[in-house]
């Protein structure tokens, strides 16, 4: 089956292994992911921090293109893009005047009919039923499922999972043979967009997350957001400096873990691209 796909900028750059793993996983379940033709950046934190109309116009253009290209559903693996697209669709549905203003800004018709799926929803809907029978190499590790912020909040708009103690990733990880741990930082913020401008704060916030996972015996941290990944993985030297200890627990995308379990080639899943070596696997 075919589904629309919005990779977003991170997945084309520093988080390319997330893109690679989603794309490597799909064929195991006879799914073809088709990129939205001529997609643009969603504007991320920068746009909504400084200009509301811009922060709505950029995602609306993406959704309008998907509609024009006949897509009913789009898979959006980046939690930040997923959040911005969903918030925009919600705000424009709530306010007709705003919808008119934004569609005039982008010079394109927009209805708001495309269903936006995050990576967990995509797996739940199109992969989960066939997952057990496809497993060739169970992912037999203790894992800390880290959801971060933008996958689950704001609940009123995203309506995804439980806001304080989500379990959807834990359920999927159990299916592929993992033991998810109970821990305290499932939905705490990693510091997100402050990675470059205030690396010190990211080291602290991400450090607390990594430490709790490691202290409770997690052998890997499972994520579904490129920003969470780069903060927990690429910022590990700063994190370890903040923690004054050497924490070596690797950070793995949900799609990489499932990919390994169904027998995908690790190099096709981009595991070699992580900064914290994935040695135990």
């Amino acid at each position: 089956m075919k589904l629309g796909f919005y990779p977003g900028c991170s997945l084309q750059g520093t988080s390319r292994e997330y893109n690679e793993s989603v794309k490597a996983l799909a064929p195991f379940f006879d799914i073809e992911l088709i990129d939205i033709e001529d997609w643009n950046c969603c504007g991320a934190t920068a746009a909504h921090s400084v200009n509301k109309d811009l922060s709505l116009a950029l995602p609306t253009r993406i959704l309008a293109l998907a509609e024009k290209q006949g897509m009913k559903e789009i898979v959006v693996p980046c939690a930040s893009c997923f959040n911005r697209l969903s918030v925009t669709q919600y705000e424009l549905a709530e306010d007709k005047e705003l919808k008119k203003k934004i569609t005039d800004t982008i010079d394109m018709p927009y209805e708001g009919t495309v269903k936006i799926l995050n990576v967990v929803q995509f797996i739940d809907q199109y992969i989960k039923d066939k997952l057990t029978e496809k497993i060739v190499k169970p992912f037999n590790y203790k894992v800390a499922c880290y959801y971060g912020c933008l996958l689950v909040r704001p609940h009123k708009i995203l309506k995804f999972d439980r806001v304080e103690d989500p379990t959807s990733m834990d359920e999927l990880m159990k299916m592929i043979g993992s033991t998810p741990i109970e821990w305290g930082f499932k939905t705490e913020c990693c510091g997100a967009g402050l990675s470059v401008s205030r690396t010190d704060l990211v080291a602290k916030l991400s450090g607390n997350i990594v430490k709790d996972a490691a202290d409770r015996g997690a052998e890997s941290i499972i994520v579904a957001c490129p920003m969470c990944h780069s903060n927990l993985d690429m910022r590990r030297p700063e994190i370890n400096k903040y923690l004054k200890e050497d924490v070596t627990v690797p950070v793995i995308y949900l799609t990489q873990a499932i990919g390994l379990a169904v027998g995908a080639d690790p190099s096709k899943l981009g595991l070699q691209r992580h900064f914290v070596k994935v040695t135990t696997l």
Partner: peptide
């Protein structure tokens, strides 16, 4: 410094949309 992590509105008993307010105040 507000990261718009949305934890505040998730827990606010009166659903005061602080992240949205922060966007406005920054502008």
């Amino acid at each position: 410094l507000c990261l718009n992590c949305e934890n505040c509105i998730g827990r606010c008993p009166k659903e005061v949309d602080i992240p949205r307010l922060m966007d406005y105040l920054r502008t």
